[in-house]
Nucleic acid binder design. Sequence first.
DNA 1: CAGCTTCCATACGGCAGAGTATGGGTTTAC
DNA 2: GTAAACCCATACTCTGCCGTATGGAAGCTG
Lengths: 197, 197
Amino acid sequence: MAKSSTKRNGGGEKSSLTPADWEQEALELIAEKGIAALRVEPLARRLGITKGSFYWHFPGRDELLAKALERWERQDRQHLKLSLSAGNAPAERLADFVWRTSRQTLTHRIYVALCATPDHPCIGPVLRRVTQRRVKYLSAALEELGLQGIQARHRANLMYSSYVGYLQLQAQGLVPDKDEPDFDAYVQHVIETLIEV
Amino acid sequence: MAKSSTKRNGGGEKSSLTPADWEQEALELIAEKGIAALRVEPLARRLGITKGSFYWHFPGRDELLAKALERWERQDRQHLKLSLSAGNAPAERLADFVWRTSRQTLTHRIYVALCATPDHPCIGPVLRRVTQRRVKYLSAALEELGLQGIQARHRANLMYSSYVGYLQLQAQGLVPDKDEPDFDAYVQHVIETLIEV
DNA sequence: CAGCTTCCATACGGCAGAGTATGGGTTTAC
DNA sequence: GTAAACCCATACTCTGCCGTATGGAAGCTG
């Protein structure tokens, strides 16, 4: 029974937690239970550790939240970039956007959680930036499709609104999830209605 | 300077608070800061009173929340009933639904707040009932317009999703509010896109 | 006006989490 | 091998809220 170099980890895990570990776990906690549930002691318990560690890595709760959101925004921007570099035709890119609603579950769940507190000084700015980036992405693709100016912006807002709303209905369990058969039919309907080619 | 019969109220207000007063104030608090902000002592302070009063009217926080939501659901059902009894043509009713998104601000803000915690045992059931009632309303109107069965349901989901999503974007301040000039143009775009006659 | 009900104030105990202080074990550097 | 830096545990204070207990003031009732 050779005791490993540290006590906590029996397997091949890292011996100590990095700030990134805290941030990632914070994001998952937010995705599960919302920002209000992001509290230091519960988060520490979740990581099988005490808050003594936390306050060594971070000055306080707000700083963790800020760093975590920063990380989330980075990941989201990365996802958008991947969509763009795919280099598909605009119609395909838009359809792809709609489909991706059901993938990247974590990112989306976090987005819903943040939507719940848009007035928070740490959250509002990040949330707005992410939203605007996505809407702008949609708007650009729609312009390529032939919609001009205001029409493209309106349609982008509509598309994005329906995306956000669908996330909410999904959270209520009132609307089919991916996997489920009805989902594909619905997405198809959305594409036909909003991206009439 | 005749002192009125009780000390707290200088004007012609009621001398004592009824449960309904608590419930209504609770709803407004929820609309402003979310369900997490619905706490007994702050709410009492808001009413210029102490919690001694609260615990006389209600057994506890959860019971207030339940009663408040019950009241909210009643009001919302009333709104729907009014829309139906208007007896307009389905197209007008749908357009009316879209337009009403920007009215009844309180009801809508409460809806967003509730969406933030769909898993809460007190909230989930109410939220689902309200959502389903509304979607069913839309679906029925769409069927009258000629869409059949699944198509009507899909379109109703899409319309309602775009409604919910718009509320979120509105909360982020990324989208025009009523009053503002762009709003009418957007609503017009939505109607043309989702209710193509 | 005595007595009862209604409505609220005050004071209390308890809990949960934020931050702080401090010390100890482990690794790294020299 | 020793000293420093790193990482975490423990114990503590402080704040804010929940729920309870109790008493008191105002109103009605006879």
